[in-house]
Design a protein around this nucleic acid. Structure first.
Lengths: 144, 144
DNA sequence: TTAGAAAAAATTGAGTTCAATTAAATTATA
DNA sequence: TATAATTTAATTGAACTCAATTTTTTCTAA
């Protein structure tokens, strides 16, 4: 008896457009981020650092949903580029503190027009964007 | 003069929850897919193959938004596992045809309960899921 | 106080992703 | 027809991601 399995059709998945949209959007960032010598993952790490100035790898990982397996090489590369420094906490030697450098701060100005350039790529109305944002955070917070 | 740069705050980005949600969802699949010896990318490739039975690498790539750099090693691995075969088209030797095997077909039955298991992880209402689906495809189709 | 548990990063290995290039086959054109 | 352009996969290299393990440090409890 041949079954149809509609639940296994690609077009009936919610995960697939999520996966595909994320990938395509990140790809869109590339030319803009190339100009400021950042990858997408480095870019979101810099967003945290522009706000926080200094925090532990663990704290950064919680904000970005990334672990040390991803962050250790990422932060070493960003240190090489001069955007951050890495040093152990004196209070607790297990903790590695990542801090923004003046070069990292300076990058903020150059990055300031990236969000606007990206917004023009994603042609959603303001309402749609707000709705999408809200649904995505619902997914993130629910998937516990 | 110190600026605030709200447009560069992580919580004001649309791309970040998209990136994070996609990552978290794919991670959620892992235990279920481990049981049927597939990775997430292999799983979506199988979804296409369960429908199409046979198609070119190019056609598969267009459906999945993936190129040969990703698909070539992926399909070799799936061939190793016995789920697909790979052979050149006789009409056009440039084209590599991927075809599902009986083992690949048999996997469909085992995969049939994966979508239901995942749906219980993502606690959106039916209406929210429909809305999210629609917005995501809008993003995918717009990002040209 | 000291052994054991817990916490934080780093490391390792498998797999994914993409840009750029290469190789082979096919199609188009001069 | 012969050459050039195009198409399709494969390859290469850089980067990301995560699970699992290891190392170091700190905390806890006997």
């Amino acid at each position: 008896m041949e079954r149809d399995y509609p639940e296994l059709k690609l077009e009936n998945q919610l995960c697939f457009p999520l996966y595909a949209a994320a990938k395509e959007i990140v790809k869109k960032y590339r030319p803009y981020l190339d100009e400021i010598n950042l990858t997408y993952t480095q870019y979101i790490a810099m967003m945290v650092l522009w706000e926080e100035k200094s925090l532990s790898v663990k704290a950064l990982g919680e904000k970005l949903f990334l672990d040390s397996g991803t962050l250790t090489p990422l932060l070493k590369s960003m240190e090489q580029k001069g955007f951050v420094t890495r040093h152990r906490s004196e209070a607790d030697e297990r903790v590695l503190i990542v801090s923004i450098t003046p070069e990292g701060e300076a990058l903020r100005k150059k990055a300031a027009d990236v969000p606007a350039k990206m917004q023009s790529c994603v042609r959603l109305t303001k309402e749609e964007a707000v709705q999408l944002y809200s649904l995505l955070y619902k997914v993130i917070n629910d998937v516990g």
